[in-house]
Simulated assay, not measured.
Amino acid sequence: MTGGFLLICAMCLDAIVGEPDWLWSRIRHPAILIGAGIEWLDRKLNLGAQRRAKGLLALTLLVVGSLILGKLLSLLGPAIEIIVCAILLAQKSLVIHVRDVAVGLSTSLPAGRAKVAMIVSRDTQDMTEAQVARSAIESAAENLSDGVIAPAFWFLIAGLPGLIVYKAVNTADSMIGYRNETYRDFGWASARFDDLLNLIPARLTCVLIVALSRRWAFWHQIVADARGHISPNAGWPEAAMARALNVALAGPRSYDGKLRDLAWVNGDANREIGATEVFRACDMLWKVWGLALGLLSVWFSFNLIVLEWSIQ
């Protein structure tokens, strides 16, 4: 059974089931277990001298452990591979969380702030309606790449071991990949490796959004905004989403009480946005998922035909 077929099944299962509360309220989600392992490595290794070398050791242990775990799970058969892959994809849960922000904004600004605080790390208590909407759309674009396209890509390339390595490294980046005194050295290797693993998926996500929105005429501006973004990868899906919705994203925002004057993405577009634009972003998430599934199905069917022809 090919990886393409398993991935098609996993994507559909994730889209239907998502993250059921009845299950994860009883057992620990794999992402939480991965996070617990990273916290243990942080406590044991992130101290004393040579923290960059220790961070590289932590990353190596994380990758090797993920490869072994992925290989062992894959030996249990295709059904387990499909289930694990579906669990580590995040399409339905992403749409639910982003849509919750739109629903919250439709009710009141404080409700929108409360919902967006669940999906972003920036300060939310004084956000305007437009800032809440921008934050939700940026999170939607970035997590479409990190939580859906990238995991699917690495599963297709390297099976369950590749997928689990990606999720472990991506989780490590979100936990220790900060440029502060505590993690500047220790988290450096994890952050750089995460950048490498997301290099192709982020640009692939961008292309899918541009193809669906038919914004090829803005390609040079999209590339310019992506290259000027604070993140080497997140800027690509964000720049594409900004053009698809004709909105301005990024710009100044506050972290831990400190204002950061970041560059705008598609800054000349509409800045006074709200729940309507967030709902439209949710629609785009499903369109990209559908296009990815369709392309994967075509690719799988083509390979199946070639295989049958070669056998004959």
Rank of each mutant, 00 (worst) to 15 (best):
L307T: 15
V120D: 11
Y178C: 04
Q125N: 10
I80D: 06
V84I: 14
G290F: 06
K44I: 14
S174F: 11
Q221L: 12
V265E: 07
A141C: 12
V265C: 11
G228I: 09
I209K: 00
H97K: 14
A217L: 13
C9D: 12
S231H: 08
A226E: 08
E308F: 14
A239E: 11
G70M: 09
G294E: 10
C206W: 09
L33G: 10
R43P: 05
L67P: 05
R227I: 11
E39I: 15
G48C: 04
A250G: 08
P252H: 10
I137T: 06
Y183L: 01
K54T: 02
N266I: 10
A239H: 12
A10M: 06
G4Q: 13
T107M: 07
V17C: 04
D195G: 00
C206N: 10
V101Y: 03
M175F: 00
E142L: 08
A269P: 06
A269D: 10
I200E: 11
A202Q: 09
L56Q: 12
F279D: 10
W40I: 13
D256V: 12
V17M: 07
A211P: 01
L197I: 07
I87A: 04
E19Y: 12
S139H: 03
I82M: 11
A189Q: 10
I8D: 07
M1N: 15
V98W: 02
W289C: 00
I311G: 15
H29K: 07
D14G: 01
I38Q: 03
I305Q: 12
G112E: 01
L45C: 11
K167L: 01
I87Q: 08
R253V: 14
L208S: 04
R43M: 12
A189T: 07
T107V: 13
R113P: 01
D261W: 09
I80A: 14
M118A: 15
A189R: 05
G104P: 03
M241L: 11
L304T: 15
L67S: 08
I27P: 04
V103P: 01
L33W: 15
R214A: 13
R26K: 15
R184K: 12
M1I: 14
A79D: 09
L75N: 13
I34R: 02
M127C: 14
T182I: 14
V17L: 09
P161R: 13
N198G: 09
T171S: 11
M11E: 06
V132F: 03
L75H: 13
N170M: 06
L13T: 10
P30C: 08
A102S: 10
A292F: 11
I34H: 06
F155I: 03
V148F: 02
I230E: 15
H29R: 12
E272V: 11
M175D: 04
A53Y: 04
A172P: 01
I200M: 13
W289Q: 02
L7A: 06
H229V: 07
T128G: 04
